[in-house]
Structure formats: C-alpha cells, structure tokens
C-alpha cells in the first residue's frame, strides 16, 4: 500500500486578499475577517493523492500546521477523500518562518510514521516562499522534486515526474520516499461532494502540540526561525495620475491620442 501524506496550509481567501493589510505597529497581518481556505496549490496536491488512491491501494493522511481554526481545512480534505487528519497546533509553533515551518511539519510526518510520498503545493498564496517542501525534504533526509506538472510513472520504488522550468520541463527519476511540490498544471482539483462530507464525519483529526511532537521549544515558531521581519515601509508612488474621462468612445479616442504622442502606435 502506498502511504501518502498531503501537507495543506490554511490561507486567507486569496479572492479577498486585497482586504488584508499589514499592521504598521505589530508588523503582522490584519486579516480583517477574511476567511481561511485551503491554499489553492495544496488542492492540486490533494487531488494528486486522490487520483493515486483511485488507481491503487493507498492511504492518505492530511497534515496541517496552524491555529485551531485550521482544523476546518483538514476536515475539508477528509471530506474530499483523505483517510486521516493531523493538525499541528500550539502557540509555540506561532510566527514560524519557512525554515521552522518545514522543521515542524517534518517532525509531524515522522510522528505519523510510515510514508512513501509527501505532496504539497509549490507555494502558498500568502507567504509566497516556495521553501517549505524542499526544506521539509531536507529535514526528512529524502529527495524532493519541486514544481511537478506531470506524474509520468508511479509504479514501484522509482517514479518519473516532469517538473516545470522556464519554457519547458525536466524529466526526473526519483526514489521513494520523496517529497513532490506540485503546480496547477498537474490536475484539476475536484469539488466537495455531499457523500464525502457525510463520510468525513466519522474520520478522525489528531491534534498535536509541542508535547506530542517532543521537540524543544527553541527549534519551533519564532525562536526556531532564522529570519525576522525587521521593518515595514509603505511604498509611495512616484507617478501622478491623469484620469481620462468622458464617454466610452471619448476615453478610447483620448487614450489612442496618448499612445500616439508617446510614439508606441
């Protein structure tokens, strides 16, 4: 049986991201009631796991680190078809950068036990680093392929995958266990079904804190993060806008005039 772990992150809904601002005093995000959703690329990771389960014998564990509210996105993944859920939640985990996050998730995966494949999205929509997957693989001492866009061969101990690169792809042969970070080209994530939601009610979510992981506090959260935000500046625009007004026709004509004056048409 193939043991799959899918790492998912609860992120503020990207569709409402323009409502999120940084608090200039605390330098933290003011989420302003923006709801948490599954990070969009993690849905592709989840879909990859579900398709493998449909093709053969597989067990899917879904793992997230975040505040207790992140339990909802773990529940959503159980409703999509994951078998078991794990939430790493503890005030000691808070304020982690990519390094400390990857370390904590790696400890969670070790505690889950046997695994062959770890899937996660290639980046999160809020933090925008792409480091958690590869750093997690390093802490687990297993190989990683980032930006996977196609799984070519998934039988046996050696897989072949295609990973995106500038104007093309690279074909990688990789020995399991391994981490794969996925792009949206890999698949189209399915949506929730009613029967899935019903089935998920019987599935368990284990919540683990610092004691369950058995990791010293200095390796976690803010203390375990090599990077810190030292300053936040607001950027000022150096351009002064001239609004073009009038009827639609007039606006279009004036714009054409501006383009002509600039010599670009």
């Amino acid at each position: 049986m193939l043991n799959i772990v899918v790492c998912v992150k609860a992120v503020p809904d990207p569709k409402e991201a323009c409502n999120i601002k940084i608090d200039p005093d605390t330098k933290t995000l003011m989420r302003c009631e923006v709801p948490f959703v599954v990070n969009p690329l993690d849905k592709n990771a989840m879909e990859a796991a579900l398709q493998l389960k449909e093709q053969g014998d597989a067990h899917i564990s879904v793992l997230s680190m975040g505040p207790p509210e992140a339990g909802n996105i773990v529940k959503e993944c159980l409703a999509l078809g994951a078998d078991q859920g794990f939430l790493l939640s503890d005030p000691a985990f808070g304020g982690a950068d990519a390094y400390a996050t990857a370390y904590t998730l790696a400890k969670g995966i070790e505690k889950i036990g046997s695994f062959d494949v770890v899937f996660c999205g290639m980046a999160s929509s809020d933090g925008s680093t792409e480091w958690v997957g590869p750093e997690m693989a390093t802490f687990l001492n297993i190989p990683v392929v980032t930006m996977v866009k196609e799984i070519v061969e998934s039988e046996g101990e050696f897989w072949q995958v295609k990973a995106s690169l500038e104007n093309g792809y690279r074909l990688m042969r990789v020995q399991l266990p391994a981490v794969f970070t996925v792009t949206r080209d890999l698949n189209t994530p399915r949506t929730l079904s009613f029967s899935g939601i019903i089935k998920a009610r019987k599935k368990e979510i284990s919540e683990w804190g610092i004691h369950e992981l058995g990791v010293p506090a200095e390796l976690l959260g803010v203390k375990g993060s090599p990077t810190v935000v030292s300053n936040l500046s607001t950027t000022e625009s150096k351009r002064e806008v001239e609004m073009i007004s009038g009827t639609r026709e007039e606006k279009a004509e004036q714009l054409v005039q501006k383009l002509a004056e600039a010599g670009v048409i």
Partner: peptide, 21 residues
C-alpha cells in the same frame, strides 16, 4: 530561476540558515 528556487532551500536547510524569496 527554476534551479535557484529548488537549490536555495536545499542548501539553506542543510546550512541551518534563513532564506528569503
């Protein structure tokens, strides 16, 4: 680059240091 984006975190985690994107 596609290489830098994968290699940088692999190196950073081995050197136990921070990395910005």
């Amino acid at each position: 680059t596609s290489m830098g984006r994968e290699l940088a975190p692999l190196v950073a985690a081995r050197l136990k240091t921070g990395l910005t994107a």
